[in-house]
Write a protein that binds this DNA or RNA. Structure first.
Lengths: 142, 142
DNA sequence: GACAGGTAGTACAGTATGGAACTAATTCCA
DNA sequence: TGGAATTAGTTCCATACTGTACTACCTGTC
């Protein structure tokens, strides 16, 4: 066995946790909890609650909560879908787009502090491998 | 900037979430919640609650709960540390070692199903890069 | 149209999580 | 030695999360 997959998973998990933790204060300044940020970040690609729940692997009931908070904060609004009245199409407000982009930037800065430790081509390599690993999964963000 | 770090983080996070979700049923059969598994997996390397909390980036109060559950399930026990009577040294039982190893194997299988999609040298490459990223050792209080 | 079977989203209530306060033990220093 | 400051771990309890049940709506069949 050349590489232990479980170890790989654990290493990776610790990395992501540490990075997220490092920028959670910045997210809070933007008025975002980590979970809310995940929702905000995916809304453009998956604008319906059920889609978001599947995409983010969280319960529908949790999506309801995060969306409620994000709507209350003025980051998005719900619109009835004309073709299916059961569905709520989620639309980002200008504030929502701004907050999302700033949050992405904060996350990128936090991760960059780690990525600085590796060569640029390794970074591209990492992206290539991760994309390949998610290949059988739903398509990437827009 | 050649590669967006935030996208990299998000891709990676989705990958880990999907993999963990894929083996959570198997963990449940072993009598383990995901969080409990993380604790069980780290006990050998960080045998004190405070160390575990720092290592896993979770609150001390949560470690108390997970350790209590794991003790109740017979996977570990607490012992007073002879050199510092404030500390609880955590010791895995035989059942604990067995459960941990099976859980690791389940996680490895779930990840392997993904890793099968990429070339063996990419897997080694991934490990090399992740190890480099964690090089600036996280604030290990140990 | 009416009914059966299925899906989107929400509400409720029980469980899980974690910040702050607390207890016990240790260390430091006069 | 005594006591202030520090640290390990736990407890308390307010908040967050989520399984289940529910309402509203859709689709297909007759």
């Amino acid at each position: 066995m050349p590489v232990d997959a479980a170890q790989l998973w654990t290493l990776n998990h610790r990395l992501l946790t540490v990075v997220l933790d490092a920028c959670s204060a910045e997210l809070a300044e933007l008025g975002l909890e980590a979970k809310e940020f995940f929702v905000l970040a995916e809304v453009a690609a998956s604008p319906y609650p059920a889609e978001l729940a599947a995409r983010l692997v969280i319960p529908k009931a949790s999506v309801t909560v995060y969306v409620r908070n994000l709507v209350a904060k003025g980051f998005m609004r719900r619109e009835i879908d004309d073709t299916d009245l059961r569905r709520h199409r989620l639309v980002l407000t200008d504030d929502g787009v701004a907050a999302r982009d700033r949050a992405f930037a904060a996350l990128a800065r936090a991760f960059d502090r780690r990525l600085a430790a590796i060569a640029p081509q390794d970074r591209a390599e990492l992206q290539r491998i991760l994309l390949a690993l998610l290949e059988p999964a739903p398509e990437a963000t827009s």
